[in-house]
Design a protein around this nucleic acid. Structure first.
Lengths: 350, 350
DNA sequence: GTTAGCAATCGAGACGTTGGAGTGCTAACA
DNA sequence: TGTTAGCACTCCAACGTCTCGATTGCTAAC
């Protein structure tokens, strides 16, 4: 059997209606709202076909139809192709650069949650490809060394490490200069064991300390890959959707949002998947697919953001499978665009 | 009427039983479990008295009794006086110093949540009374200044600020030395406008920059007072208790745990209240009282922790009003003691 | 002061009934 | 051949009724 134009209209009407109401849709409803001038009986025949083809499901004999996963997928793909996604002008997002990155991410994710009424998450940018600007050392206590690492984009990381020797002020300064001579301008992949050895050679006896410092630098950058900070907002929005409000599902979802570990995996998986993807980077994962295989009734919409300077991260919305994909996709696209713009403007201004 | 010994036993038995089961307790249950050899009829008479005195309540005519707020308060106060609170040796808490403060706090709060089966929170230590070790300045970009503030206890804060002039490397160094000469060893309250002026005078033309830097230092320390970081764990534990699991209450509580703003207020209020309190600092707030006036069915147990070096913060557990106070109080006391010990040992070792 | 016994009360859960929404099928119609 | 009206059938959700068990307060006896 073939999915002709009329069937497509009916299918889309069913899904749209279901997304709005959350209730199974009957033939009379379609007959009234599809715009096709057909009686409910005719619609029934078509629906029967659509069911046979696997796009819709009947929860029980005397109920209307709801979309199957295949139906959802069809719907989502079809709106992803509509490039004229209505960009929500009304909710003009107030994206403005905030100096503190953390603040900015928190603000963004809150915005997204409030705007969509779903749960939102954002990952801190990945630093692996980011270049080191410089490193500063100082000694806050005996046998301790404080490392301040400044990366491109003015990302700052710090860590206190323990070392085996006591250094005087001047030695610390010299070591700082030595190390910076080698590593500033490099990114993670440029720091090879060979490089480390050649710095150590020049360290006039402080080899162990140098090694500890560089290892720690690598750690700080690397740690950010698998422990990238994740900010969330609006987890309690899921209570607005009855199909997720039962204790079991809600509890799972919310603890995922509290203990961010599983979200980290999710972000990791998403950024792996979307590495070589379409331009906008927008992706929709339906419950059970890929990164959210253990959240049967949820969907995840993700996008990649970029804050000038090559700082890239992932932003996402989790909601019920019957979420308003059009709105979410529109909002996210808008957000990404405005972020991009804000950072471009900023760059030109500088 | 007077609260004689027998009434006390009966009251405590009622409350203990209710804490365990969450169901109203009837006279027969008490007759069996109180250890007093009395028939249910006698108990009924006593219960009638206790109700008249306001310690217990009857939800409806044909149900057992549940504790009133007055009853809870009596019970909690009485176990707070029992100094022989069973210290839960079995769950020997694995408190060990972790270098990174943040990690350590996260670990602690998780421990507490898992151990008690309630929702737990911990505030980062307050820095207002903490002394400044030193300040480091550097220039990550034109007209930007990176401030690294190292406080007693090796707490590190950083911030990038914008300034109006371009400085060369040497000037930055000189300013750093100048500022440190004045402020290292001081705590927040020692930084007066007068002090700032006298530094500015010596700054040979960089007065504005100095002012911006010091303001920012004050900000960094102060920001920590009202935006002290708060870590939480086990928010979803509340789903284990039916009286909090309805959508409304759960949603309120969980969003408080997600958007930490209201928790910050709570911590603030608790540390104000407990400033001049008994030694252990353990406090129990029943739903509706003080800091949790808008959480009718919850209770909050708090304590003050100290990590050597005068870093003080608040740790707390939120659960249903019918929480196992004995266990929670025991666990928290134990935790505080072990923290104390771990840091003392560490200090001696140094 | 304590206890046994009894009627009264009330909520939780089981059960049955009803009504509405929806379907599939058939037969008639264009 | 595609569309439509009509009808019997199905099923869930909502509602009301009923019963059962837990518990109480009261009274009278110990």
């Amino acid at each position: 059997m073939e999915l002709d134009e009329r069937k497509v209209i009916i299918l889309k009407t069913i899904i749209k209606n279901y997304l709005e109401t959350g209730e199974p849709v009957g033939s009379r409803t379609i007959s009234k709202f599809s715009g096709l001038n057909l009686s409910s009986a005719t619609i029934r025949n078509e629906m029967s076909d659509l069911e046979e083809m696997g796009y819709i499901i009947q929860p029980h004999t005397s109920a209307g139809r709801i979309p199957s996963d295949k139906g959802y997928r069809f719907y989502v793909d079809s709106i992803m192709q509509d490039s004229d996604r209505r960009v929500n002008e009304a909710t003009e997002l107030m994206v403005q650069r905030v100096d503190k990155l953390e603040m900015m991410l928190k603000q963004l994710v809150k915005l997204l949650a409030v705007d969509t009424n779903y749960a939102a998450l954002i990952s801190g940018p990945s630093l692996t490809e980011n270049k080191i600007k410089y490193l500063q050392l100082s000694q806050p206590a005996e046998k301790k060394l404080l490392l301040i690492l400044v990366l491109e984009g003015n990302i700052i990381k710090n860590e206190v490490i323990s070392i085996d020797e006591d250094l005087d002020h001047e030695t610390v300064l010299n070591l700082t200069i030595l190390i910076n001579n080698y590593i500033s301008g490099l990114s993670l992949k440029d720091i090879s064991p060979k490089l480390i050895t050649s710095i150590m050679v020049q360290s006039s006896g402080h080899g162990e300390t140098i090694k500890a410092v560089i290892d720690s630098v690598v750690d700080m950058i690397e740690a950010d890959v698998d422990s990238r900070e994740i900010f969330t907002s609006g987890a309690t929005n899921i209570f607005k959707y009855p199909e997720l409000s039962d204790v079991d599902k809600a509890s799972k979802l919310i603890s995922a949002f509290e203990e961010k570990d599983s979200l980290k995996e999710l972000v990791q998986e998403v950024s792996d998947l979307s590495r070589d993807e379409n331009s906008s980077g927008l992706q929709v994962y339906l419950g059970g697919e890929g990164p959210i295989k253990n959240m049967q009734d949820c969907s995840l919409v993700t996008a990649n953001y970029e804050l000038g300077d090559g700082l890239r991260g992932v932003i996402g919305v989790i909601g019920p499978k019957r979420m308003d994909y059009e709105k979410v996709l529109g909002t996210m696209e808008n957000l990404i665009k405005q972020l991009d713009k804000a950072y471009k403007d900023d760059k030109e201004k500088r």
